[in-house]
């Protein structure tokens, strides 16, 4: 009941914030344009920084001003942080085996074979592009070898 009472109270005091939300949307739109034009630069590093840096800013604006996470109870913040922490833990635990294709006592033969096959195809001018649907017998072994 306290939740309903809280909401009733909010209704009584609420003001129209439409113009503010439209300004946030305009900011999101401008950031989106910058991220797209960032892809036109010849430097891959700039593209990545612009693309992901702006994605973080856009996500912040949506979470802060559209989802109103800043006015939520601490329990919501704790839950969100726990979810994000689990994602980071997952990445930290698994990524060494994925980012590296060999260690002191192991080699990921399939991953290397996939890389070499794709590099060779690209060097040959195919670029991984299929003008027509590939025959199943042609593609399946490569997919298995890679993953």
């Amino acid at each position: 009941m306290s939740g309903d009472a809280h909401h009733d109270h909010a209704h009584a005091e609420h003001h129209d914030h439409s113009k503010f939300y439209i300004k946030v949307w305009a900011a999101l739109f401008v950031l989106f344009l910058i991220s797209v034009f960032g892809t036109l630069t010849p430097w891959f590093f700039v593209t990545i920084i612009v693309g992901f840096g702006i994605a973080l800013v856009k996500a912040y604006l949506v979470v802060r001003y559209f989802m109103h996470v800043d006015i939520e109870k601490p329990v919501v913040h704790y839950a969100l942080i726990a979810g994000l922490a689990l994602m980071v833990l997952f990445f930290a635990a698994v990524s060494p085996d994925v980012l590296n294709h060999e260690g002191s006592r192991w080699v990921n033969v399939a991953a290397r074979a996939e890389m070499e096959r794709r590099e060779a195809a690209h060097a040959a001018g195919e670029g991984g592009h299929h003008e027509a649907a590939p025959a199943a017998g042609h593609e399946a072994p490569a997919a298995e070898a890679g993953h």
Binding site: G83, L86, M87, F91, V94, V98, L99, A111, M115, G128
Partner: peptide, 26 residues
């Protein structure tokens, strides 16, 4: 929060594979 775990797992997997496989850029 449960969706963060779902999408976070997919996106984290994609990112680590994308870094580990530069040829995906093609």
């Amino acid at each position: 929060v449960s969706e963060i775990v779902i999408f976070g797992g997919v996106l984290a997997s994609y990112i680590m594979h994308r870094i580990g496989h530069p040829e995906w850029a093609y």
